[in-house]
Amino acid sequence: MLTNLNEVLPQARKEGYAVPAFDCIEDFMVRTILDTAEKNNSPVILMSLRHDLEGKGFSYIAGLINKVAPKYHIPIVLHLDHAEDFEFIKKAIDNGFSSVMYDGSKLPFEENIKNTKEVVDYAHAKGVTVEAELGHVGGMNLDGSKEGDSQLTKSEDVKTFIEKTGVDALAVSIGTAHGVYESEPKLNIERLKEINEVSSVPLVLHGGSGTPVKQVQKSIKNGITKINIFADLRISMYKGLLKAAEKAKKDARIDPTPDMLFEPIKNYLSNTVATKIEELFSDNRV
C-alpha cells in the first residue's frame, strides 16, 4: 500500500529501527525490492533521482509503483530523492510521488529555510511529506564527479530549521558520503545525539552504502529512522551480471534464456535488500 513518511518514520523512531530507502532506476529493481521487503515484512521507501525520471521516467517508475503498491500488504513510500528544482518537485507530486526531498544543503541557512518552506507548503496541501537536508553530505555523483566535501550538521541550527520550515524528516550530515568510500568512514555519533535531542522530527542518514554495520546500527539507536542505499544495490547487480555472463559462457550459449540472464542479478539484489532490512532492524515490523 502506498503511503508517506509520516506513516512509517515516527513508528521507526519510537521502536528503534530504520526504514530502508532504496533508489530504483528500472522496473526490475522495483519488483525485486518490493517482493523481498514483503517477504521480510518490512516497510520500504522506493526512491528516484531526477536523472531517472527525465523523459518518460515518471510514467515508467512512478506509474508502475502507484499501480502495484496496492497489491502489497507492506507500507510503501514513493520518494523523490535529492531534488533542487521546485518546478520538478511539483511535477513529481503531480505524477504520484507520496514524498519528496528538497535539497537546499548547499545554500546559505536562511535561503535553505525559505525554499524548503515553499516546498513544504505546496506538498502538504497535496498530502505529500517533505524531507530536507541540513549540513551537507558530500561524496561522489553517479557520473564520477565529486559532489563536494561534507559539512556536519550543527545541532544549534536544527530546532530553528524545523520550526520555520515544517519539514516531516531531516537528513543530517554526521560523517557519511554518497557513493563508494575511499576509506572507512567514522560517524560522529556524539553530534547525532545532540541533534536527536533537539529534533522534533525523524532523522535521515544519506550515504548508507558501505558504512560499517556497527556504526549504522549505532546511528539507529541514536535517532536515525531512514537510511538511503543505492551504491550497494548497483554493486550487487553488477556481481549478478558477471555471474550470468560466466554461466552463459560456460554453457556456450549465445542466446541465454531469460532465467539465465536475470536470475543471478535478481538473486544478488534480493540478498542485498534482505541483508539491509535485517541490519536496519526493519524486518517483521508490519
Rank of each mutant, 00 (worst) to 15 (best):
A171T: 03
S270Q: 04
E184L: 10
V8C: 06
T165W: 02
D23S: 15
L78H: 03
H79K: 08
G175L: 05
H206W: 05
G166R: 03
L5G: 01
Y268H: 10
K164A: 14
E111S: 01
K154H: 12
T36V: 05
K250E: 15
A177T: 14
L241S: 11
N141D: 14
N41I: 00
G139Y: 08
P10N: 13
T211Q: 10
V30N: 04
A274S: 05
E182T: 08
I235V: 12
A18L: 02
E111A: 00
V204M: 10
G179T: 09
F281A: 13
L205E: 07
P75S: 00
G148D: 03
K117V: 09
T165A: 11
N40C: 09
K226N: 05
P212I: 03
N6D: 11
L280Q: 08
I220F: 03
G148E: 03
E182D: 07
F86W: 05
K164D: 13
Y72G: 04
G135I: 05
M237L: 05
E110Q: 14
L269H: 03
F22R: 00
D259P: 00
R285W: 07
H206R: 00
H73C: 12
Q151I: 14
V100D: 14
N222H: 14
D85L: 13
I277Q: 04
V204A: 09
P258Q: 12
L2Q: 06
N271W: 00
E163P: 06
I89L: 13
F97L: 07
H178M: 04
E194M: 03
V44G: 03
S59T: 11
V8E: 10
N4V: 06
N41W: 07
N66T: 02
M260K: 12
G16T: 11
N115M: 07
G138P: 05
R50M: 01
